[in-house]
Computed example of a mutant assay.
Amino acid sequence: MGVVIAATGAVRGTGNTSAVEGAARAARDALASAGVAPETVGVLVNAGIYRDSNMVEPAMGALIQKAAGIGLEYSENDPRSFSFDLMNGACGVLNAVQVASAILVTGSTGRVLVVSGDTHPSLTGTDATEDFPYATASGALLLEHADGPAGFGPVHTELADGPVAVEGFVDTATMGTTGRSAMTVVRADDAERRIVDVAVTVGARALADGVDPLTTVLISSRPTPGFAAALSAKLGIPLVSGVEDTADVHTATIPLDYHRAIEAGRLSGARTVLMVAAGAGPSAAACLYHLPEPNTR
């Protein structure tokens, strides 16, 4: 048995500026696509980083769970649901897949919902700015166990040595009364090269698990406009076709691009998707996703 993506949801643009509402909408869309009730989700894992108004507590996962209508009944015999945040930058979604796989293998729940999304804390726009490099977007992956060889392979991770490549923080020394609506992001001059290097390392490790390069496509982070193309060239795996959005949508990139590829039929002919997430540390995570038959999810 493997862990497969039963359904997806994604929100990009459309005036949405809230990471909580965006992730909740993506979650509801995934549940509707799968035709399953919210109460069948046992666990929700949120991998988003940049939050509405720089909120710290409660966990964003709990707010997203509530907004998505999951686990809101509390009678004695009602099914139980819980949620939590798993924060590891761009790698968070694939880390959440690791956790979800461990949960699903126990049989304690039949479905785990992984959500992610980021926004500018001021909630004033959906696109990246000169000072804040991340566009607002949210995504959701509804995960289930399924018989057969389809599903996620092992998730490989790597943290490179050296100074941090990208830092995002609230500068309390200078923010004053704007701390709820401002964020400082600092990128090292050599950030792209170092992030590409660590992504190549972990991507090659995932490919060593065994794939046919002729039927494998790449979905990856895009911390800079040329990052995904550079990674594709170094790994020798083509990018999934038709991804026109070059903005860095950070933690939502993999669920968003996978959702778009499925909706547009762009995985026709592919048997395997190499998913690579990289950023910050510089760190990276990668895994193979063996598409079910037929290639619909």
Rank of each mutant, 00 (worst) to 15 (best):
V97D: 11
V20N: 04
G110V: 08
L267W: 05
R28S: 01
T126Y: 09
G162I: 08
A67M: 08
P149A: 08
D171G: 09
V99K: 00
T8W: 07
V97R: 00
E263N: 15
T172A: 12
P163R: 07
V249E: 01
A165N: 09
T172V: 14
A247M: 05
A34S: 06
R260W: 15
A182C: 13
V43K: 00
A277E: 10
F169G: 01
T251Q: 11
D131S: 15
R28H: 10
A165Y: 03
R205W: 08
P223I: 08
T14I: 10
A233Y: 07
L86D: 01
A90C: 15
V99D: 00
S220V: 02
I49H: 00
A233W: 10
T253A: 07
G9A: 05
T17Q: 05
A280D: 11
A206V: 14
A160E: 06
A24C: 06
E293W: 13
T109M: 01
G279K: 06
G71W: 05
S81T: 11
A27S: 10
A62T: 15
A6T: 11
A59Y: 08
A188G: 02
L288C: 11
G151V: 10
A34Y: 02
D248M: 12
V43T: 14
V276L: 06
D257C: 13
H250G: 14
R222I: 11
A7T: 00
V20T: 09
T129M: 09
A128L: 04
A204R: 15
I219D: 06
E21C: 03
L274Q: 05
S221F: 03
V97Q: 09
A261D: 12
L94I: 05
V41A: 10
V202Y: 03
A208M: 06
N16V: 14
A264I: 11
I262W: 07
T172K: 00
L141D: 09
F132N: 07
N46C: 11
G236I: 11
A247L: 08
N54P: 05
T246M: 14
T246H: 13
D131F: 04
T201P: 03
V200P: 08
G162L: 07
L239Y: 06
G61H: 08
P255E: 10
D257A: 13
S232E: 08
L123F: 00
G203L: 04
L159V: 15
A191D: 04
D190Q: 02
R193C: 13
Q65M: 03
M87F: 03
T184F: 03
A7K: 05
A140P: 04
D161L: 02
L31R: 02
G279W: 06
T216R: 02
D85F: 00
A230M: 08
P255M: 07
L231A: 12
N54I: 03
N77K: 13
R205T: 12
A199P: 06
R260E: 15
D189H: 12
A59K: 02
A27H: 01
R187N: 12
N16W: 12
E39L: 08
P294K: 02
T253R: 07
D190T: 08
S138R: 01
S81A: 12
L44H: 00
A6H: 07
A30N: 04
P163W: 04
T251I: 04
A278M: 11
E76R: 13
G179F: 05
N16M: 13
G265W: 01
